[in-house]
């Protein structure tokens, strides 16, 4: 394995990891862009998504690898089910925990978000137990071996799912009426309301989409790692949050870019520095970004909103 092959392999590892972070980061950034709340429960919504995917796999009676074309149907059903469930969960969280606090001082919803995070963790811990739960190995995983560089089918699947989700989101936000309503609400909530936009509906929609994307992240996580755990949302959520800040919080393309960059940063620092410093490097980057470029790589200096 030459140095170049090693680099290529680590870039592949980093891209597939970063794709998951990007899916989660989108939810952070969308919610922040709309109501300027860092939704710390978002990582746990992702975790719930992985458990919902597990439930659906179980209720479909799938216990092992699915052979043939049926695998595509099973995976699509699980993906959509997990997205729908987490999307609705996001709406419920927004309605119950954040909307009543929309005019409260900023710290209140932030602390509430942390509370929601613990509630979700504890519910899942009660239901699924304190140990990691194994996720059936639904997807066959042939390995594409290009010389010394290996790409597994699962890695390709993750990257594919992420690209489809992100492209779909981008299209939705830029080209539909609801997307335009979301952008208008993000820019100026009051003015948007004056223009006849239903603010509550738009914010609920934002939560639905962001949480559904986290559900998609939970689905690929379960398929990829074959193990889900009630505390998984915590670290993954923090990394995705870092990705969102790195890309420019509030900026959708920035979140995708940030996610991929964090994934690459992790795999390259595991290779060229040391596995044990990976987290320190990632969160060190977060600090540097906050100090030197608080609006992130792609963030714009928005005018102060009222």
């Amino acid at each position: 394995m030459s140095a170049l092959e090693l680099l290529a392999q680590q870039i592949i590892n980093g891209l597939s990891l970063g794709a998951i972070y990007a899916l989660i980061a989108l939810g952070y950034t969308m919610v922040y862009g709309t109501i300027e709340l860092i939704n710390f429960a978002h990582g746990d919504v992702f975790m719930v998504g992985s458990f919902v995917a597990l439930l659906i796999v179980g209720s479909l009676g799938v216990a092992g690898t699915v052979a043939g074309p049926a695998v595509a149907i099973v995976m699509l059903a699980v993906l959509l089910g997990a997205m729908l469930a987490t999307g609705l969960l996001g709406v419920v969280i927004e309605r119950a925990a954040y909307r009543p606090l929309r005019r409260a001082p900023r710290l209140a919803p932030l602390i509430t978000a942390i509370g929601v995070s613990f509630i979700l963790q504890n519910i899942v811990q009660l239901r699924a137990g304190p140990s990691p739960v194994s996720f059936p190995d639904v997807m066959p995983n042939p390995i594409i071996d290009a010389g010394n560089v290996i790409i597994s089918a699962k890695q390709l699947m993750i990257i594919f799912v992420s690209i489809v989700m992100m492209a779909g989101l981008q299209w939705f936000v830029l080209n539909t009426r609801l997307g335009r309503a979301m952008r208008a609400t993000a820019q100026d909530r009051q003015a948007a309301a004056l223009m006849g936009i239903d603010i509550n509906l738009t914010i609920a929609l934002t939560f639905f989409i962001g949480s559904a994307l986290a559900g998609a992240g939970g689905f690929v996580f379960g398929i990829y790692y074959n193990s889900v755990w009630f505390i998984n949302g915590y670290i993954a959520g923090l990394k995705a949050f870092t990705a969102a800040v790195l890309g420019g919080i509030g900026n959708i393309v920035g979140a995708m870019l940030g996610g991929v960059l964090i994934g690459l940063l992790e795999s390259l620092s595991a290779q060229y520095v040391s596995e044990r410093y990976v987290d320190a490097i990632v969160f060190g980057i977060l600090i540097l970004v906050l100090v030197f470029r608080p609006s992130g790589l792609l963030g714009q200096q928005l005018p102060e909103s009222a």
């Binding site: 680590q10 590892n13 998984n232 595991a270 040391s274 596995e275 990976v278």
Partner: peptide
């Protein structure tokens, strides 16, 4: 000799190394 950090789930980069 490498050390994992707690909460880490992805060891592919480490294993590639």
């Amino acid at each position: 000799h490498e050390h994992l950090s707690s909460g880490q789930q992805d060891f592919k980069s480490l294993l590639t190394k």
